[in-house]
Simulated assay, not measured.
Amino acid sequence: MAVVQASIESAGYKGRAEVIRDIHFSVGPGELVGLIGPNGAGKSTTIKALLGLLPEVKGEIVFGNGEDSEPHYAYIPEHPVLYEDLTLWEHLELAASAMGLSDEEFRERAEELLARYRLTEVRDHLTSSFSKGMQQKIMLVLGFLHRAELYIVDEPFIGLDPRAIRDFLDMLNGERKRGAGVLMSTHVLDTAEKICSSFLLLSEGSIVAQGTLEDIRGACGLPEASLFDCFAAMTEGT
């Protein structure tokens, strides 16, 4: 059973109700689906539709079996969203409270994540004093604090150093082995080609190709091409 199934006829904003059209896909347990496309293709709008942040959506989005009142997903945004007057640990406490984590579960998970991303020594510092890379690490820690069924990740590699990228990919791999699904928007196509199980290629608000790398190659008529070359061929002029 898919962790999310999306069948979106159209979605957008007031005055622009059809920014994306005919977006149909699913993410299964253990899958890492790469959401790729040029700027303005509709990637962010697709993510906002999944998160329920758009005023105009025609279609249906079902998380898990569709019976739970709350979808069990975690969202890791492209740009850090933090409170200037809270410390790192206070951010984690606030998130844990919103997620309903027990104190024991929260502390064990938080300390594990802080150690992994080498943030333990600054846990009581205000996040406003952190570099952009450190703030992005905080978003990863917040995203992984609760073991979700689905991770929605938007451009996660921006601002991360190579070691943090490796830690992030190891975390994703571990969560996938646990059975979580991942939808990841990224422009880092060489990395996406190596780690994603399938792809959604968007252009001008619609899916122009989807499936495995072999499926994408077949759709663009380039049987030996890299994901980058397929991307270039299918989005030329957009």
Rank of each mutant, 00 (worst) to 15 (best):
S7H: 11
Y13A: 00
Y13N: 07
Y13D: 07
K14W: 12
E18S: 12
E18F: 09
R21V: 10
V27R: 00
V27A: 00
P29T: 00
L35R: 05
G40W: 10
T46Q: 04
L50I: 10
L51D: 09
G52D: 09
L53H: 12
L53F: 14
P55N: 09
P55V: 04
I61N: 04
G66M: 02
S69K: 15
H72L: 11
Y73M: 05
P80C: 10
E90C: 06
H91P: 02
E93K: 11
A95L: 13
G100C: 04
S102V: 02
S102R: 09
D103Q: 13
E104V: 15
E105S: 13
R109Y: 02
L113P: 06
R116E: 11
R118S: 11
R118I: 09
H125A: 14
T127S: 15
T127R: 08
Q135L: 13
Q136F: 08
I138S: 00
G143N: 03
F144W: 01
F168C: 04
L169R: 13
D170M: 09
M171A: 11
G174M: 11
R176G: 12
G179L: 08
T186C: 13
E193Q: 15
E204Q: 14
A209I: 00
A209M: 02
T212H: 11
D215T: 03
F231M: 13
M234D: 04
M234G: 00
T235W: 11
